[in-house]
Design a protein around this nucleic acid. Sequence first.
DNA 1: TTTTAGCACTCTTTAACTTTAAGTGCTAAC
DNA 2: GTTAGCACTTAAAGTTAAAGAGTGCTAAAA
Lengths: 352, 352
Amino acid sequence: MNLDERKRKILSSVVEDYIESAEPVGSKTLVEKYHLDYSSATIRNEMKLLEEAGYLEQPHVSAGRIPSTKGYRYYVDNLMKERKLSMVDINYIDNTINGFGDTDAIFEQIADVVSKILSTPTVITKNNTDTIENIKVVKISEKLLLIVLMSKNGTVKDCIAKLTDTVEDDVIEKLTNILNKDLAGTPIKELHLALNNVIMKDLQAFSGIMDDVVNSIKYEMSKDMKKLNSGIENILEKPEFSDIDKVKNFINMISTKEIIDSALQKSKDNKLSIVIGSENKEVLLNDYTIISLDIEKDNKYLGKLSVIGPKRMNYAKTISTLKYINSKFKNTLTSGKKNNNVKGDNSEKGRK
Amino acid sequence: MNLDERKRKILSSVVEDYIESAEPVGSKTLVEKYHLDYSSATIRNEMKLLEEAGYLEQPHVSAGRIPSTKGYRYYVDNLMKERKLSMVDINYIDNTINGFGDTDAIFEQIADVVSKILSTPTVITKNNTDTIENIKVVKISEKLLLIVLMSKNGTVKDCIAKLTDTVEDDVIEKLTNILNKDLAGTPIKELHLALNNVIMKDLQAFSGIMDDVVNSIKYEMSKDMKKLNSGIENILEKPEFSDIDKVKNFINMISTKEIIDSALQKSKDNKLSIVIGSENKEVLLNDYTIISLDIEKDNKYLGKLSVIGPKRMNYAKTISTLKYINSKFKNTLTSGKKNNNVKGDNSEKGRK
DNA sequence: TTTTAGCACTCTTTAACTTTAAGTGCTAAC
DNA sequence: GTTAGCACTTAAAGTTAAAGAGTGCTAAAA
C-alpha cells in the first residue's frame, strides 16, 4: 500500500505523539494538536485504513491508536526528520567524554553519557577479535608487580600481582621478554589458554612468581567481560515500566548475555542498525527496539554501541546522539589528542 | 521494663517471623509455628503488653504485630543467636574474593559479594585520610604514559596519559622524581590542589606533557569518588519495594552521598555498628537499617563496609557475613598471599 | 492468680457492580 | 470526499457489600 500525504502525516503524528505521551492517540487529539485540516471523522476513517494496512494498532476498541512495528518502521525509514542535538546535550557530551583513558575507558564513558541523555539502558559490546600487542611488567614495590597489557585496538588492561617472594630486576626483564614473545598477537579471548601454554613451555623457571602473575592477569581479563551495560535505573521513569515485574523481566533480559548477543550479531553489515519490536527474532525482545552503531577506527571494527529500550523510544534523538558520539569518538581516538576545551576538572559538572 | 522469658520468646518469634515473611505476625501463627505452649489468648495478652512497652507495633487493629525499632534493638542486643554462615555462602565468598588486585579492587569485590549473599545494597566508604606514597611513570609507547599512584593503604590507581608530543626517557625520569618529591605524603583528597601547585612550582619545564599527565590523574581520581555502591537491583525482590516509587526514592537516597555519609560518620567508635530505623538521625533513613563494619589492616583504619536495607533485614546473617568477610579480608591483605585454593579460573563459577 | 474459650468489634482485602469517560465505527446528510 | 451525529464498546474509576484476619475484652476454668 502506498501511503498518500495525508496518511503519512497522520501516521507520523501518531508515532510522535505516542512517543511523547505513551498514551494511545485518538482522532480528536490529532486534529487539535497537529492542526490537521480535517474533521475527526475523516481522521478516523484514515486511521481505520492505516490499521487495516498494519501500520497502527488499537489496544481495545475504545482507545486511540498506537503504532505497530510496521508503523514504527515506516516512520523511521520514511517520515522521521533528522534532528539536531540540543546544545545542552552537545555540551554535556563534550564535557564528559574527555578522551582520558584507554579505549575501554572511553567506551564506558560513552555508555554512561548515552544512557543519561536518552534515559535508557545502553550496552557496549566489544569486538572480540582484539589481540594482545605488548606487555609490560613494572615492579612497584618489593612484592608488587604491575602488569600492563596493551591490545591492538588501544585497550590497556593492567593488574597488580602480589608476589610471595621478592624478585630481582633482571628476572622481571626476562619475564617481560618471554611474555611478549609468547603472547604478542594472541587474541584476547584465547589469552586464558595461551597463558597456560606459556607456563608449560617457557616459564617453569619462574615458578615462584608465575602463579601470581598469571592468575592476576586471568582474573583481570575475566572481570572485563562482565560489566557491559549501564543506565538500568533510568528505565524506572518510563511509564511502560510502572509495573515492577516488567522492570525485573527487563533487567533479567538485558543481563542475559546470550539474548543481547543474539540481538546484536545479525546487524553487522551496516553501521547504524535499527531493530524494532517483532523484527527481532528473539521473542523476549519483541517489545523492545535496539539501535546500534558500529564503532570504528582506521577502518578497524572496535565494537558496537547499542541502545535498548521500549519500542516507544525517541528514534530521532537516539540516532542523532549516536551519530554525534560516533563522530566525536573517531576524533578522540584517532587524533590522540583530547579534542576541545577540556580543563580536566570539569568532569563533575555535567548533569547529575 | 524487664522482659520475662515468655515475652522474650514471643518478641524473638515475632521478629524472626516478620523478617522471614514480611507480614504482620498474629497470635495464632506464633502458637502454631513456634510451638509456644500457651493459648493464642495468652499470647495476645502478652503482645499487648509488649506493644504498650514499645517493642511491637500494630499497622492496624485487625493485623498482627510487627517489631518496632525498639523491638529490633532488643532482639539484636539480647535475643539474636549468632549464626554460622552456610557452607554455600562461605564457598561463594572464598571463591570470589580471591585477593587479586589492590585494596580498592578487593573492596569492590567485597561489596559485590556481600550484596549478592544478602540481596541488599552494599556501600563501601573509604577512609579519606589515605595519602600518596609513591608514583611511577611508565612509558608504554611513543605517546602513551602510564602513571601509577600508590597509596599508603595499598590502593593502586593508574591512568593513561596521551601525550601530544613524544618524550624522552630521561624526561620521564625527571618527571617521576619531581612528582614523587612534591606529592609523596599528600592526602588523596588534597591531590587535586597539590597537582596545581606542582605545576606552578616545579614543572614549568615540562609544559609540553604536563597538562596531559596532570589532567589524566585528576580525571582518574575524580572517577573514583563515584561508584560506591552495588546491588541496587537486589532490592526489587523484596516485598517492601513492590511499589515502584519506593524503589525510586530508595535509589535516590542511597545515591545521595551526603545522606550516606551522615549515616556512616557517627558510628566510628566501635567496629561493628548497627543503626536501626529511627535511631538514625537522618529522617529519610528512618525506615532502614544500616549495619557497618570498620575494615582495618595493621590497626590502620581503611574504610567502612556497610549494608543498607529495610529494617526487616536478616540481622543474624548480615552480621555473620560481615564478620566472616572481615576475618577473610584481614587475612587477604596482611599476608600478601591469596588465602586458599584459588585456582584463578573459578572466579566465574559462584552463584550468578 | 494465671490461663483460656468465646465472641463482638475493627479494619483490610476482595469481589461484584455501577458509573463515567474516551474513542470508535457507521449512517446519513452535506 | 467530507463531516455531523449517535449508538456502541471498553477500560478506568468509584461504590458497595461480603469475607477474612486478628484483636481486646469478659467471664469462666485451672
